[in-house]
């Protein structure tokens, strides 16, 4: 499995580096404008993962990979593991940015606490769980991209409306508490795990074109 994860890193190294720069700047901007900038952040965050799938489709890579001595379930696991590691990496990176920016005097910043970070991480993981499952369910690039986009868009719009209407106030309030964010994290991780198992099952029965 490790060679597969390494492959993913090899493939997206350039993308990760360039996009990291964009994220960090977008994230910084979001402090000064509005938290709904998270939307932009999440979109950007998903690009490297989607570009991996795009590359897979373009090169019919799975034909090759399935012919190597790797279990189909391992191929799926590796992709999930990569996505997970990538998310952890990003969250850690943003944390470091916060620390650096926070240490500069005279800059006013919204205070972000640990449990906010955990909630953000959980939301990203949950999103991934949904989008990766959609990918393995469909396995056609254009349809996958379309369905993913619609799902993402719907979720965002719902989130924004719910926030505007104040329906999510309880969530925002609770997300400042560590015990709540821990529960959210556990649920999100569980969702991610279940999504992985389902994808493994789907992929092991699929034909590759």
């Amino acid at each position: 499995m490790l060679p597969l994860v390494k492959r993913d890193f090899l493939l997206s190294r350039a993308t990760i580096v360039s996009l990291t720069i964009i994220f960090v700047s977008a994230y910084l901007v979001s402090f000064f404008i509005d938290t709904s900038q998270y939307t932009l952040f999440i979109y950007l965050y998903l690009i490297p993962i989607f570009s991996l799938f795009t590359l897979d489709y373009r090169g019919k890579i799975n034909c090759y990979v399935i012919s190597l001595p790797i279990k189909r379930s391992t191929i799926v696991k590796a992709r999930y593991l990569f996505s997970f590691c990538y998310t952890v990496f990003l969250i850690l990176l943003l944390w470091i940015v916060d620390l650096v920016v926070g240490s500069i005097p005279n800059i006013q910043m919204e205070s972000i606490i640990m449990s906010n970070r955990i909630v953000l991480f959980s939301v990203l993981i949950a999103l991934l769980a949904i989008l990766l499952l959609i990918h393995y369910l469909i396995l056609y690039l254009l349809i996958t991209a379309f369905v993913s986009f619609v799902t993402l868009f719907t979720l965002m719009v719902c989130g924004i409306i719910a926030t505007a209407m104040g329906w999510l106030d309880w969530f925002y309030a609770l997300s400042n508490h560590l015990y709540f964010s821990t529960i959210v994290l556990i649920l999100a991780t569980l969702l991610f795990y279940l999504s992985m198992k389902a994808s493994e099952k789907l992929f092991s029965q699929r034909e590759i074109y």
Partner: peptide, 26 residues
């Protein structure tokens, strides 16, 4: 060992990268 009608591999890969990915699997 398999050879298909086309090389189903990332076009940005080099043989060096391919080897790094494939060699440990066998």
């Amino acid at each position: 060992g398999f050879v298909y009608d086309e090389l189903y591999m990332y076009e940005n890969f080099t043989i060096k990268k391919m080897k790094a990915f494939i060699a440990p699997l066998y």
